[in-house]
């Protein structure tokens, strides 16, 4: 590992538990590089996660880190941010953690526009429990709990976040890492609730069941299917079917939650 990045890791905890070719390590590396590029104060960064493979990431990262219960990272993070708005809060979460068991917390954190950067390690599967389908698993894909093919329709997390009120919404992939780092930087600099949906790969559970058992095959799929927001805007719905649209979807400046609460305090204490 590059020397300047070492201070961001708990090097005695590495190597990580993730499988060979798992994209989680790539996203974690991108997060750390973005933090380094922005020169954030390490002792004021707080990284919160839920449960699952991705939620192990904070354990390797040398910040104030909190590994919570399944789906609840945003609830804990909201408490931390409310109590101490000086802290920079990141939530690292998986697609199941964020959109299934944690779905309600997700939409409400977005609605409040609380200043938390949520990065979804979206590998379309429950990895920690061995490959069950998640709300992000594509229709017809196979999983241990969808042995005949998945009949659930999957979420578009970016659309969900935007309609719930998130004020920065973007999608990156583990293939397009330089772009991913830039998107993370933008999300971290954004004041308000930012969502970054990162298309990730799980060769072990998703790949093996869906004829892409090598990480290379999965990466190739991302490379082939990715289109930029700009190109997508010129494509028909049919042409977009199965495609991964990457880039920034939404950015707006809306009063941030803890700043609004500071005004409540002012009012309660006699100001206007």
């Amino acid at each position: 590992m590059r020397k300047e990045l070492q201070k961001y890791f708990r090097n005695d905890k590495l190597p990580h538990i993730w499988c060979p070719g798992c994209g989680h390590g790539i996203i974690t590396g991108a997060v750390v590089r973005a933090i380094d590029n922005l020169k954030l104060n390490q002792s004021k960064v707080c990284i919160v996660s839920g449960i699952g493979c991705s939620s192990r990431a904070p354990g390797y990262m040398n910040f104030n880190t909190l590994h919570t219960t399944h789906g609840r990272a945003l609830a804990f993070a909201t408490g931390i941010k409310m109590a101490n708005p000086d802290l920079k809060i990141l939530v690292l979460t998986g697609d199941g953690d964020c959109s299934a068991i944690g779905g309600n917390h997700f939409i409400h954190a977005a609605r409040r526009n609380i200043d938390i950067t949520t990065i979804v390690f979206n590998n379309s599967i429950y990895g920690m429990t061995g490959g069950q389908y998640s709300p992000m698993t594509p229709k017809a894909a196979f999983a241990t709990t969808a042995p005949y093919g998945n009949i659930d329709r999957n979420f578009d997390l970016c659309k969900l976040a935007q309609s719930a009120g998130a004020t920065y919404v973007a999608r990156g992939t583990v293939f397009h890492v330089p772009q991913l780092i830039k998107l993370i930087e933008k999300a971290l600099k954004h004041k308000g609730f930012s969502l970054l949906d990162v298309v990730d790969i799980c060769p072990t559970y998703f790949g093996r069941r869906n004829k892409m058992s090598s990480p290379i095959a999965m990466m190739n799929k991302i490379r082939e299917m990715s289109v930029t927001v700009r190109s997508a805007s010129k494509m028909s719905e049919e042409e977009l079917s199965g495609k991964i649209v990457i880039g920034e979807f939404h950015e707006e400046r809306v009063p941030e939650y803890t700043e609004e609460y500071a005004k409540v305090i002012e009012k309660a204490q006699g100001g206007n």
Binding site: L66, T69, F76, A77, T78, G79, I80, A83, N84
Partner: peptide, 21 residues
């Protein structure tokens, strides 16, 4: 803060307590 449910409320107070509140 009024959270979205009881689960979130419990999570939020644990988070806040970790900052010394």
């Amino acid at each position: 803060i009024q959270m979205e449910d009881e689960i979130a409320s419990m999570g939020a107070i644990i988070g806040a307590s970790l900052t010394g509140f």
